[in-house]
Each structure stands twice: as C-alpha cells, then as structure tokens.
C-alpha cells in the first residue's frame, strides 16, 4: 500500500476547550487508485489530509496518536527536515481555492519553476522551460506566452490547472486534492476532473480526493471513505456504497440530494446538525440524528465492523449495519 493512515487522532487546543477533529481515522490508498474521502464541513476530512501532508498548524493542532505510513515508513517519526523532502517531491496537495493558494506577485512561470530550482537545483532558464512543459501538460493554451502572466490574469479553471501542474511538477507518488473543483462552474469542473483522472492514470499516482459532493465521487473514485465527526463511518468500493449504503449517515446523505433525472417529492432531510467537536455525543457520534438509534448507540462507540459481502472490502461503524443494508426506503 502506498499510503496507510492508522488510527490517527488530531486535537485542536483552543481557548474554549479541546476540539477533537480526528478520532481514529484509518484509510489507505494504492498506487494508481483513487480514494474519495467524503464528509461535510467539520468532519475532519481536511485535517486528516493536512496531517498526512505535514502542514497541520501546530499549535493549536496536535497529533495525539496513530501512524501515517508512506511507502512503509511512518512519517510521524520523521524529522521536519526529512519530512520536507517528502512533501512536494513524493506527495503533493491541490487546494480548493487556487487564487489564494498562488502567490499574486509572482508570475505563474516563476512559481512553477520554483519547484525545480528548489527541489532539483535547476537553473532558472531550465526551470522556465520545465514550467512551460507542465503548463502544456495540463492543457493551458499558448503556454509559452502565458508563462509570464500572473495568477489574476487566469480564469478560475485555468488557475486550478496551474495548481495541478504545480502538484505534478516533481511527479509525486501521491496527490491529495482537497475539494479541487468546488469553486468552479460545472462545465469547467468536468474539464478539471477529467484532466486529473487522466494524469493519475498516466503517471500511476495514488489520488486522495477530498470532497463533499457525492456526484463528483461517483464519477471518478475507486473507493470511498465517509467521515463524520472525525471518524470513518463507512468505507467501500464506490459502486457498492451507492447501491446499498451500510451506515445510516451515508444512506441519509444519498437520500437528501435532489436528483437531476426526476422531479422529487419532499427531500429526505437528516434532522439536526453535525456535532460540536468540543462536545461529541457519547456512543456513536451520529446517534442524535439517526433514525435507527437504540440505547446501545447512546452509550457504546461502535467499532468499524467488516460488512460481510464476501470480499472483505466494506466496513461500517454501525451496530445495525445489517439492518441498514437491508432496509429499503422505496
């Protein structure tokens, strides 16, 4: 396995108390594979990714437990210096908001070239050539002319392509994309997602795609991990989860999205709100919002059960995963 996160715990110590953002996350991704991490705001999906990349703000953040194995080595035992060599060269990240992730006072060519001058010790001239190559690779038209342009001179979709180019620059083994298309329009979103999927195939990279959009996940992911209140509540190959979710939260999410192909009746709405991370309910964190909750859900934390579909690929953190799997709403 290319990357394996094991039982990761992250806390934020704030003035108001300790926010438990990540509470025992375990997931893995292979080379050439796309793992989608799905969750709402505050579910801990981005914090987990930041911990993997080693860009967590510490303090207030603190990794309080777990392992992050990258190509077999635990990154959490690395010195900061060694960590920096991994970051950028072997794993790279694409952020949601390209405009605020790019430096507004440097031309895109300089920012792309920097990857090569800093990590590879290339001359500025060679780096410039490389930058143009990269821009062509992510299909920015007239790359040679645009290499001197500044981020604000590009459209949102083009800027996101530059972010992708930057992540690809050193041909990393793993790319983490945090909501890469959320800020884009649908027609541009489709272009960018296609590009990302194609490059992943070409370079045989592992891709972790962090998103809240069930539609995007269905289009590109191989497997999916659903997060809620800092835990993985369900993980499965992408086909299975849409066909028959094994956790009430996933099921609720799938039922609450309006459909493009029909005019719905009233939407199913998950009642209530996601929990406050400083005060996560005891037992299963989802129990106050769950239609199936029983007494045990309010006292005991459900383990991540293996859902016995035969191949051992599905997991659900619900005492009643079997009932959820069998329950059909319509």
């Amino acid at each position: 396995m290319l990357l394996e996160v094991r039982d990761l715990h992250v806390e934020f110590r704030t003035r108001d108390g300790v926010a438990k953002a990540v509470n025992g996350v375990t997931y893995g991704v292979d080379a050439g594979e796309t793992l989608a991490v799905l969750g709402e705001s505050g579910s801990g999906k981005s914090v987990t990714a930041q911990a993997v990349m080693g860009i967590l703000d510490t303090p207030p953040g603190k990794i309080t437990g777990g392992e992050i194995l990258f190509q077999g080595e635990d990154l959490l035992t690395f010195k900061e210096e060694d960590r920096r060599k991994v970051r950028g060269a072997q794993m790279a990240m694409i952020f949601q908001d390209a405009l605020s992730s790019l430096n507004p006072v440097l031309s895109v060519g300089d920012q792309l070239g920097e990857m090569f001058t800093v990590h590879r010790g290339m001359s500025r001239k060679d780096a410039r050539t490389k930058a143009i190559e990269l821009m062509e690779r992510v299909r920015i038209p007239a790359a040679a002319q645009r290499v001197r342009d500044y981020p604000h001179q590009f459209s949102g979709g083009m800027r996101q392509r530059i972010m992708i180019a930057m992540a690809l620059a050193l041909e990393p083994a793993l790319i983490i994309a945090d909501e890469p298309t959320t800020a884009l329009d649908v027609t541009v979103q489709a272009q960018v997602m296609d590009l990302l999927a194609e490059l992943r195939r070409e370079l045989d990279m592992g891709l972790i795609l962090i998103t809240h959009d069930l539609g995007v996940v269905a289009d590109v992911a191989d497997k999916i991990a659903v997060m809620y209140a800092g835990r993985i509540v369900e993980s499965a190959p992408v086909h299975d989860i849409y066909k028959a979710p094994a956790h009430p939260y996933t099921k609720g999410l799938l039922e609450s999205i309006p459909r493009l192909d029909q005019k719905g009746r009233e939407l199913y709405a998950i009642k209530g709100l996601p929990p406050n991370l400083m005060n996560i309910p005891p037992g299963c964190a989802f129990n106050p919002r769950c239609p199936m909750a029983q007494d045990i859900c309010r006292t005991d934390v459900p383990p991540l059960y293996e859902v016995d579909t035969g191949d051992g690929t599905r997991r659900s953190a619900c005492f009643y995963w079997r009932e959820t799997l069998d329950a059909r709403t319509d």
Binding site: S155, M158, T187, Q189, G215, Y242, D261
Partner: peptide
C-alpha cells in the same frame, strides 16, 4: 457535465465537455 451520484449511470451516459471558458 453535472456529476450524477450513481456510478451505474456514468457508464451509459454521454458527456459533453466544453472547451475553454466563458
């Protein structure tokens, strides 16, 4: 271009990817 939350549907679905920006 709308991503449809149904992996079955994506197989028999024609996608029109527009070039360029508005």
């Amino acid at each position: 271009a709308v991503p449809v939350p149904d992996p079955e549907a994506r197989a028999h679905r024609e996608r029109i990817i527009l070039t360029g920006d508005v």
